[in-house]
């Protein structure tokens, strides 16, 4: 009868008219509950899925590590798992706390990102909850030594603004479709958040400075939502320089070839669409030639 003391008539009897317990109901209740939750006995075990990660240095394609919380007793509880990564590998959370029901496992997703300049090697991730410890081996390999490789794939990408269910990383994820953020599924494309305002910008930083001679831009496949005009800019020792200009594009892919430059980053400066209020980019690819 949790409502009883709120009702008008019963409240009279419940009213405390003298200075009674100064630490009020809430505090005493909290203490009782807290005791149950900080018991030393490990009532919750944790797990990691997958148990091992094999990754490439592609910070914009994070790996998903799912922390599982499994009950060993019948009492529902809230449990924290602490997460420590080995630099320069990063995790999205240093701690995940969740309700752990008595009868099924709770899970918490954690993103693991490997910066583009990470040397090959082992970078373990440690999980800990109470006395529970789980180690997840993370093995980082080098990108394949291929002169025709897309240098933008999975590299750090940011934008001037981003629509709510989109992601700049969606422009360098190797996926050429326009799919919005979903349940445990990242957006595979990018669009800005400033309707009818131009320019909009997307910038990808390469893992290390490299010679580049071609940029392939995939805008929306449907002309109604496609980019029309943009500049391709490269960050060189001499600063930003425009290496290609595209005007009057209609839909899908456009390949810009230009005199090779050594660049550490590429920026797309978007100037106009074919009528849509937002700039859209489903993929950006950068090649040596």
């Amino acid at each position: 009868m949790f409502h009883a003391h709120m009702t008008t008539r019963r409240g009279v009897a419940a009213a405390v008219l003298v200075v009674a317990p100064l630490v009020a109901v809430a505090s005493s209740g909290q203490i009782t509950t807290a005791k149950a939750e900080t018991r030393k006995d490990p009532t919750v075990t944790i797990s990691a899925s997958p148990q091992r990660l094999d990754l490439l240095p592609r910070p914009c394609i994070p790996a998903l590590l799912t922390v599982g919380f499994h009950h060993q007793s019948g009492q529902p509880t809230y449990t924290s798992a602490f997460i420590r990564s080995t630099a320069p590998v990063r995790v999205s959370d240093e701690v995940v706390t969740t309700y752990v029901p008595p009868d099924y496992a709770a899970t918490a997703p954690v993103e693991v990102r490997v910066p583009g300049d990470t040397p090959p090697g082992e970078y373990p991730i440690y999980l800990e909850a109470g006395r529970e410890r789980v180690t997840v081996p993370v093995v980082v390999s080098a990108e394949p030594d291929d002169p025709n490789r897309n240098l933008a794939l999975g590299q750090a990408t940011i934008a001037s603004s981003t629509g709510g269910v989109l992601d700049p990383c969606g422009a360098v994820d190797g996926n050429h479709t326009y799919t919005l953020l979903g349940y445990n599924r990242p957006a595979t494309a990018w669009a800005d958040a400033t309707p009818s305002e131009f320019p909009d910008q997307v910038q990808t930083t390469l893992a290390k400075p490299a010679q580049i001679g071609r940029v392939d831009l995939y805008t929306h496949a449907d002309r109604r939502f496609a980019l029309r005009d943009w500049d391709v800019q490269a960050l060189t020792d001499g600063g930003w320089q425009t290496v290609a200009q595209v005007r009057g594009h209609t839909a899908g892919r456009y390949s810009s070839r230009f005199a090779p430059v050594t660049a550490s980053a590429v920026r797309i400066n978007m100037l106009a669409t074919n009528g849509y209020a937002y700039s859209t980019l489903v993929e950006l690819e950068i090649y040596q030639q």
């Binding site: 317990p21 100064l22 630490v23 505090s27 203490i31």
Partner: peptide
């Protein structure tokens, strides 16, 4: 009225 309550990390 005055008193003391405990702030808990839980």
């Amino acid at each position: 009225r005055r008193g003391t309550a405990f702030a808990l990390s839980e």
